[in-house]
Amino acid sequence: MTRIHSTALVDPAAELDESVSVGPYTVIGPKVRVGAGTRIGPHCVIEGRTTIGRDNQIFQFASLGAMPQDKKYAGEDTALEIGDRNTIREFCTFNLGTVQDAGVTRVGHDNWIMAYVHVAHDCRLGDNITMANGVTLAGHVQVGDWVTVGGLTGVLQRMRLGDHAMIGFASHVGKDIPPFMVVDGNPLTVRGVNLVGLRRRDFSAERIAGIREMHKLIYRQGLTLDQSREAVRVLADTRPDCAADAALMDQFLGSAQAGVAR
Rank of each mutant, 00 (worst) to 15 (best):
T136K: 13
G29K: 04
G150H: 10
R158D: 14
Q251D: 15
S228F: 10
L198C: 05
G75I: 11
V149F: 00
N128V: 13
G168L: 09
C242F: 08
D70V: 05
S19Y: 15
R262D: 02
R158Y: 15
E213Q: 08
Y116P: 02
T136I: 15
V173L: 04
T87R: 15
G192S: 06
R191C: 04
R262Y: 02
I129Q: 05
V107Y: 03
A236R: 03
E47I: 15
L223M: 10
G35K: 00
P187L: 09
E47H: 15
G103H: 06
N128K: 09
V190Q: 04
F59L: 13
P187T: 11
G35S: 00
R233D: 08
D145K: 12
V183R: 01
V149W: 02
R89G: 06
G210Q: 04
R229S: 02
R85K: 15
D245V: 06
V104K: 06
G154M: 06
P240W: 03
I28Q: 01
A120K: 07
R49G: 09
D241F: 08
L253P: 01
D176T: 03
I218K: 05
G23S: 13
A246Y: 02
P68A: 05
L137R: 03
T105I: 09
H5Q: 07
R200A: 08
C44P: 04
Q157P: 14
P179M: 00
P240C: 10
P42V: 07
Q100A: 13
V155C: 05
Y116R: 10
G48A: 07
N186H: 10
R201N: 12
V182N: 00
A165L: 01
R106G: 05
G154S: 07
G259M: 13
F61N: 14
